[in-house]
Nucleic acid binder design. Structure first.
Length: 563
RNA sequence: GCGCCUGUAGCUCAAUUGGAUAGAGCAGCGGACUUCUAAUCCGCAGGUUGGAGGUUCGAGUCCUCCCAGGCGUGCCA
């Protein structure tokens, strides 16, 4: 892969070495410098701060150093000796601005077309396996809107990690064991008996949501109320199982409808049944990392940076959620992953430190990465939508998906960094769907498809052949140049978004690319009487189409051919 | 009290991880379809980046202290 940025880096690198060996700059080694696309067009196509970084070390003025480097770069990269750059300039406090030679841009464009679906992919994984655990909702009711955000985030992140060459598994952890399952069973049982007309008291800490009644009704319709007469213990256990099955199938269905597919559904119950939780605790005890006090077993997490020690086994003998989680993470490591990524709701952040402590204690320091997703504030027409877990009143993820659609939901969830709480206005997402960024991007895609269809109808040559350099050189308008250069940002963006765990950068980029296309479209006619120019512009359009498609597919958003 | 996250245009958010003149979209105003999709484009207006110091060639970004909001701080999950 002849990545343009890598080539430019090489040029700068070489210039620095040359300058050092000539004694024009003093530097023991080539420092880290930034090569970036400048914000302003006037600053060239790419720019570097190399001279300013070097100036500090060599005690010379940044602009002087820049001047030295610029002349060296120019000599090797500009005609007649080279063919990469058109101009090299020193500007501002000591930036070196690089303007690309036109043919170099065109050859890069050709690469976009040649690589096609693979354009933007990297091979950075080196066989590394990553497990990404996300959503992991308790199977005791419908998914809420926040789960939708994390599903979109997790899936897009996985796509990105795969794109840059990691082997990724998507995992859903099912907390199908313990207190909440019991509360859930008791809640369903109470509703079931209520439906059967039996006197019963709803558990004080039970789940209030109306979905509990729906589930009870579903079971009752199936078994015609037989369980009402079963022995209480058996009845509750049976109802709990049936209810769990129903809740889980709803979750699977939601994720399916959202287009998120998990490789692994990991059951806590199985983990508990296998004895792994007891083993994990025993292991910690044996190594003196856990101890008994007040009838409970504690882990010395404070030795690993936690504020205080945490209970693993309660004095009543029941292991805590934490103990199970330790066993679960050990299990993941045993499955051979090099790295674990967990996406948790921000309300779990108090839990991160102790989990990291546990990983470190078990010899897996720095293997676990926790991404905290901030919550979603649901609004409707500017007014916050009241949601209460206590009364069970809430807009479920399914309802949201139904109302705004899969593409819009996925895209909007990914427009913001996960560090920031997301305001999601349902009314805005639906009513103003025409102003929606997702449609803006998709529209660019559909528009290009429309151009291609039009061309086809007019008998324009639409072969997948890549036009020759002479033809491509006709792309000389400013908007064409801007568009082409914008395309080349994609590769590095994919890498940065993947390594920086920042899928939202991709939505941003796609909007910029779409904007560059719309500007081009409004100023220039693609299909005209000029056959050569038509051919060149169609080729540019096909490249844009390709990158839009690659980008949207990483987000899990469709690329429609008509809108 | 302590810890984490956040604070940027009227609103919702970006800002290439320390770079040049802080940018988009909504909302507002004014323009552009006899044309390959006007779900688009062009222009105008909008800012003491919560506040005060500090670090350096350079700070929205880093460090300290305040202010405001959210979350956490359980032998809950």
């Amino acid at each position: 892969m002849t990545l343009i940025a890598r080539e430019l880096r090489g040029l700068i690198d070489e210039a620095i070495r040359e300058a050092v060996s000539r004694g024009e700059i003093a530097a023991s080694e080539v420092p880290d410098f930034v090569l970036e696309r400048p914000r302003h067009k006037a600053h060239g196509d790419w720019a570097t701060n190399a001279a300013m970084v070097l100036a500090g070390a060599s005690g010379r003025k940044p602009r002087e150093v820049a001047e030295v480097l610029a002349r060296l770069i120019e000599k090797s990269a500009c005609p007649p000796a080279g063919s990469v750059l058109r101009a090299v300039e020193v500007a501002g406090p000591g930036f070196i601005n690089l303007a690309l030679e036109r043919d170099r841009v065109l050859s890069e464009l050709v690469r976009v077309a040649r690589e096609g679906d693979a354009y933007g992919r990297w091979d950075l994984g080196a066989g590394m396996r990553i497990n990404v655990e996300f959503v992991s909702a308790n199977p005791v009711g419908p998914l809420h809107v926040g789960h939708g955000r994390w599903a979109a985030l997790g899936d897009a992140l996985c796509n990105l990690l795969e794109a840059v060459g990691f082997e990724v598994d998507r995992e859903f952890y099912l907390n199908d064991f313990g207190t909440q399952m019991e509360i859930f069973a008791a809640s369903v049982e109470a509703r079931y008996l209520e439906l059967a007309g039996r006197p019963c008291e709803f558990p004080p800490d039970g789940y209030q949501g109306s979905y509990v009644m729906d589930i009870a009704r579903e079971i009752m319709e199936e078994d015609e109320g037989r369980l009402a007469d079963a022995p209480p213990q058996l009845r509750r256990a049976e109802l709990g199982e049936r209810a769990y099955g129903i809740a889980l199938s709803h979750i699977r269905k939601s994720m399916d409808a959202f287009g998120v597919h998990f490789d692994i559904w990991f059951s806590e119950r199985e983990l508990q049944g296998s004895g792994a939780v007891r083993e994990a605790v025993a292991g910690l005890l044996a190594r003196g990392l856990a101890y008994e006090r007040d009838g409970a077993v504690w882990m010395a997490t404070s030795r690993f940076g936690d504020d205080k020690d945490r209970v693993l086994v309660r004095s009543n003998g029941a292991p805590t959620y934490f103990a199970a989680d330790i066993a679960y993470h050990l299990n993941k490591m045993e499955r051979g992953y090099d790295r674990l990524i967990n996406i948790w709701g921000a309300d779990h952040h108090g839990y991160v430190r102790r989990m990291q402590a546990a990983m470190e204690a078990n010899g897996h320091a720095d293997r676990l990465e926790v991404i905290l997703g901030q919550l979603v504030n649901l609004k409707r027409g500017g007014e916050p939508v009241r949601m209460s877990k206590r009364t069970g009143e809430m807009v479920t993820f399914d309802e949201l998906l139904e109302e705004v659609g899969r593409d819009a939901a996925r895209y909007l969830f990914l427009t913001r960094s996960q560090d920031t709480a997301l305001d999601f206005d349902i009314q805005l997402a639906v009513e103003q769907s025409l102003e929606n960024p997702v449609y803006y991007v998709q529209y660019a895609h559909a528009r290009i498809c429309s151009i291609l269809r039009y061309g086809e109808g007019r008998g324009v040559e639409l072969s997948q052949e890549i036009p020759g350099l002479d033809t491509l050189r006709l792309l000389e308008a400013e908007e064409e140049w801007d568009l082409a250069i914008k395309l080349f940002e994609f590769e590095e963006l994919v890498r940065d978004a993947a390594l920086g765990r920042a899928p939202h950068r991709l939505t941003r980029y796609l909007e910029e690319l779409a904007a560059a296309f719309h500007v081009f479209y409004n100023r220039h006619r693609v299909i005209s009487d000029d056959a050569a120019l038509t051919s060149a512009r169609l080729f540019l359009c096909r490249c844009v189409l390709q990158v839009l498609r690659n980008g949207l597919s990483l987000l899990g958003v469709s690329a429609p051919e008509r809108m």
